[in-house]
Structures are given as C-alpha cells and as structure tokens.
Computed example of a mutant assay.
Amino acid sequence: MVTINDVAREAGVSKTTVSYVISHNPRIPHDTQERVRRAMKKLGYSVNHTARALSTSKTMTLGLLVSGQNDGMPLSLTRGAYLCELSKFARQHGYDLLLISNPDGVQAIRELAGTRKVDGLILMDLQRNDVRVAAAVESKLPTVLLGVPYDPLGLDVVDTDFERAAHELIRRFVNQGHRDIALVHTSESPKDDGANYAVRFRQAALTEARTAGITLRVPPMDVWDLNPAEHIRTVLNRFPTASGLLIDDDNAVIAAPQALLELGIHVPEDLSVAVVVPDVIHQRMSIPYTAVNINLSAVAEETIDTLIRRISKPDSPSVTRLVSQPLNDCGSIIRCDAP
C-alpha cells in the first residue's frame, strides 16, 4: 500500500508538505502542490478521507442547497450540468457533495448548522431577494453564493458575468446595424425579484440598448412562462418589426432551430439570432447561433475553490468573482440595412 511517506520521497518534499497539500493549505507554493499531486497520481496514492475527517473534526462534505421542488422553477439543463461539475471539483479537493432540496431553505440551513453535516455550503438557484442568504450568515457556516442577490450580506459570490454577456450581444447587433431586436427571456418569477441571473441579464440588456439608442422589445411576464416554441412564436408575432432575436432561455435556445424552421424563417437571411447559453448545450446540441457561452466548468471550479478557501480561512475578506467569456461568432447576425 502506498503511503504518504512514499509520496513525499517521490515528490522530494517532506511528509508535512504532502499533508499540507492534501489539506489545501494556501501557504504551499503552486509548483510544489503540482509536484506533490503528480507524485500522488503516479504512485496511485488515495487519501483516506474517513481517517482524515476523524483527525481534523471535519465531515469532508460540502452542501449544495437548491430550491425545493415546489418553487415553480422550469426544468433546466444548466442546473443538472452544474450539479455534475460541482461534484467533480469537490471530489478533486477530497470532498463529497451533499445535494439538499428543501422548499424551506431557511429551515434546511438551520438543520445543517445544527447537525454539522457539512463543512461548507453553496446556495444555488438564488433569487434577487433570497431569504436563505441571511439564514446562511446567521448559521455561521462557510458559504458561497452561486449567483448575485441584491445584497450578499458579506458572503462570497461566484457566477457568470451576465452583465458583460448582455453588453457583448447587444453591441454585436448594434455593430451590424440592427435598431430593433426582441428578447426571448427566461422566466424570472417574480419580475425584478426572481431568478438572479435572469433579472441581471434583462436589466443589463435594456440598459445597453438604451445607451446604444436602439429598441430592445421585451414581452410581458406571462409570455416568459410559455413553452419554448410558443414563446418564440408569440414574441415574433408581437414584434414583427424586429430584425434580430436575442434568446437567454436554455429551453428556448434548444427549441429555436426547429421552431424557426416550422415558421419558415431562415437564419440569418430573414432574422438574425444570438443566444447566451451554457457551452455544453451550444457544443453538444450543435446550436448554430452566435453566442456568449457560459463556461459551467469554470464557474463550478471557481465556486468550489472559493468555498475551500473560505473553510480554511473563515475570517478573510469576502470576494465576488464573475466569470466572463468572449463572444462566439457563428455568423447568425448579419448586416441590417434598415434605418
């Protein structure tokens, strides 16, 4: 059986250094950490997490609290992809990921804090005014918010930079001469106070459109909850003068090629289209539209890394990390000669 002493000899470091690397001590230089990890991989060394948990009084478990099943949120492929990515990066740090789904998120946090089931907590599916944020602060559990509420109350925040995504996409339409575009939008539930990423993207897109002097047409809230194909048809019927379509809803992005084909609309000849969508959907489903691709893996890795740092240094200043991605131009926005 390979021991920690074998790893130390292979890496040319002390046993204590190997132990520090395993426990993610930030004092160890990055190149030394990499050398130790290469030695562990080469020798096939596995950390005994049970023994480590007993010796450190840690559970070696991270909690992921999502919204409960009765919250009315639509099915989201992004949510499922995040679960897989977060679990992967937690495992790389030697942690298990415990999924908690409870309609009463405040009570769930209090139970986690009272039973000490987890060493740290990630709050997902954030609303702009999310009561779970205050509960997390009260619990004193190391917590990272996967999303941006109005007030994070001093907690660490990680998310995609949806404001930058909106800027990039609106500017692409503007640079191609478009003056009138329409939005197929993710349900916020409720408007201006619901899903944090949806509110932020819509507000940023409207601000960018006003700054550029163009019209961004946003349908009323009841349209946002229609099934994806009907949502697209309703928006196009309601705003026939729009030369471009901007889509920020995962399900509508997936439905758009077939829905537009059935309507006899050719992209980009008849209508320019751009989307914001997770990279895994854009690539694996061959979505043919210009996009800002959300790098779910990068956001998940940053979330786990931030939580591990918070666990090891609970009194350090809070951070906000927004992950941005460049525009992926697939040629679906063409020059518009309309005045």
Rank of each mutant, 00 (worst) to 15 (best):
F173A: 10
T160K: 12
P220H: 10
P257H: 01
R233P: 09
N237C: 10
R200C: 13
D161I: 13
T160F: 15
E188F: 08
V148P: 10
V267Y: 02
E163F: 11
W224N: 09
V253A: 08
T143F: 03
V158E: 02
P220T: 09
I247S: 00
D193R: 12
E208C: 12
A255E: 00
S189F: 14
K140L: 09
Y197P: 08
V267M: 03
N175A: 10
R210G: 11
I254F: 09
A136Q: 04
V275M: 04
L271F: 03
V157T: 10
I254K: 11
V218Q: 03
A209W: 00
M221G: 12
L141H: 02
L169T: 01
D159G: 12
L169I: 12
R164F: 15
P152K: 01
L169A: 01
V223R: 06
D151S: 12
E230M: 09
R210F: 07
D192P: 10
A198R: 03
G244F: 00
L260Y: 04
L263Y: 02
Q203C: 10
G147F: 09
L155S: 12
F162H: 10
R171F: 14
T186S: 15
H185Q: 04
A212Q: 14
S139P: 08
P268T: 02
D222S: 09
E163D: 14
K191V: 15
D159N: 13
L245N: 03
T186Y: 13
N251R: 09
A259F: 02
T234E: 09
Y150S: 15
S189I: 12
V144G: 07
L226M: 09
A259T: 09
A136D: 03
M221R: 12
R171Y: 05
V223N: 02
E168W: 12
A204S: 14
P228D: 03
R202C: 06
L246S: 04
D250Q: 07
M221L: 13
T143Y: 04
V267Q: 06
V223K: 01
S272I: 04
L271H: 02
H178S: 06
A165V: 00
I170K: 06
H167K: 14
H266C: 11
A182M: 00
E262L: 14
L155T: 04
V184F: 06
D156Y: 09
W224A: 10
L271M: 05
G177S: 06
V174F: 07
D225T: 14
V199L: 08
A212W: 08
E230W: 04
R171Q: 15
L261T: 13
P149L: 11
P228Y: 00
G147Y: 03
A252S: 13
Q203G: 11
S243Q: 00
Q203W: 11
L261R: 15
P220Y: 07
A259W: 03
R200F: 11
G264I: 13
I170P: 02
V223I: 12
L146E: 06
P149S: 08
I265G: 13
A166M: 05
L246Y: 06
L145F: 05
E163S: 15
L153S: 13
G154E: 07
A195C: 11
I254G: 00
V253E: 04
E168A: 15
A252V: 05
L236W: 05
H178L: 01
Q176W: 07
R217D: 06
D250S: 09
V223Y: 04
G147D: 03
E230F: 08
N251V: 06
